[in-house]
Amino acid sequence: MTFDVVVEVRLRPGIADPQGATIERALPALGFDGVSSVGVGKSIRFTLESADEESARAELADLCERFLSNPVIEDSEITLTPVAS
């Protein structure tokens, strides 16, 4: 099976996010007064070949843990969508 995968990597709660804080501070100058809790992360997109959804999820969990995120400071969220063949 082929899957479209989006991995979102974001800083764990409690880890300082100076980029998010800087963006948040800049927004009122542009007239956006109601924005709070800004967080900056990464979005990584790719396609994956795997036998089924279960094996795809297992592989992706390992991939995120060992490479795409650093579990000391980052959480990752995986979204996968089967591609119709």
């Binding site: 800083l11 300082a16 100076p18 980029q19 000391v72």
Partner: peptide, 17 residues
């Protein structure tokens, strides 16, 4: 060395960017 797990922890962006 931190990414290789030869040392613990991680280095993030400087406070104050």
């Amino acid at each position: 060395l931190c990414e290789s797990h030869l040392l613990p922890g991680a280095l993030q962006k400087n406070a104050g960017l």
